[in-house]
Design a protein around this nucleic acid. Sequence first.
DNA 1: TGTTGTTTACGCTGCG
DNA 2: CGCAGCGTAAACAACA
Length: 435
Amino acid sequence: MMTQKLYPDVSSMPTSTNAMSPMTPTYSMNSMSCVSMTPMNCSPQTPMFGSSMLNSGMSSGMPMNRIGGRIDTQPGMNEPPQLGYTTIGSPISNMNACMGATMSSINNYNTAIGRGDLGGGDTSPNSALQRARADKTYRRSYTHAKPPYSYISLITMAIQNSPQKMLTLSEIYQFIMDLFPFYRQNQQRWQNSIRHSLSFNDCFIKVPRTPDKPGKGSFWSLHPESGNMFENGCYLRRQKRFKDEKKEILRTTHKSPSHSVDNSNSSGKKTPLQHGEDKSHHLDKTNDNNLNSMLSIHPTKLDVDQMNLLHPNDLNMHQQHHHQNMSHEELSAMINRSNHLALTSEHQAMLHHGSMNHHLKQEPTGYTPSNHPFSITRLLPNESKSDIKMYADMQYAGYNGLSPLPNSIHSHTSIGNDYYNSPSLYHTSASTTSL
DNA sequence: TGTTGTTTACGCTGCG
DNA sequence: CGCAGCGTAAACAACA
């Protein structure tokens, strides 16, 4: 099994933060100008993470964070002060370090912190004290601010950054925790959400283990056609939920005794009944409904459409094999190729011409996966390696040398190190999950 | 027993 | 205001 790094889950301790459970209090952000503070023209639905929000949330003494449509309190609030733990090490600032001026608001925010001029110009001793106190609060809070990426984005990042384009659940956990310290806390909460996202969203498919690769849990990969979920490069929020039409048909077929499959209109807009998609979505999450069973249970009965899901070229291969069992390696390679393909500019161009993603709304801003302010494709998996390493190095530079990261991370599994550069090492660290 | 995976339910926010 | 996307909690089953 994969060696899980030890990130003590603070949430498991009886802290006031934990008192948020079971119902996390939410705070209306209506009074906050989320639009005016938008420093960049992101997706219309994009939750922004601008300085105004930061200031508003943090100056209130209650660091808040919104992802999707939600505001979350910061679990890091109860952490001991981390002196010298500068904001430059935050996931956000580092993830966006290469994004240039588009992150100017955050950069300005960091600069302001460095200057200590967040207090609005008041130079009185009292305000200086307040600024100092606020500065500390800001640093701690912002550093552990929740990354502005949805769980779907995070999972996608993890999978796309893996050599085989498929990861086990624990590896997904690990990737996220490695990249974002925020997620080293309240693990039970967000990991539950991760599992929910994996099961709930058609864009993630389960790939079974083979007998020669025993272990717990399946591999998770991206649906070959889901590569355009963030086709504008913004990993904050999808324009449209990816739906596997075949799964959708299966769902509606099983849901409706009359086998009506026309519960959706061509625009993809859900009817009131379908809004229960969130419910009906799960009605037939049976084994014959995912790649797992397609391969492990009926590996010889893959129909042409199902195989075509993976890659049209591989369909030929499959046909040439006369419906014989496809090996795990072949499947892995197919998914790998498919996901790589989904990320190519050519593929993007094809998608933008509506050949495959007719159900996805197009972003008119002209952002591409490579230039969007919240793109991770320019960070992962290539450019990111150095950036992430920088992040990992800087993240804990303020701990006076007492990095909370286990030695194993720094030695061989740290993001940005060979852990992510070398597939072999990657899979060595995830011992039993190697493909 | 802990992890993994599925499912249901509910609440929130932004958009049209 | 309804819908869509998302986050969270929780119950439950299967599995290593």
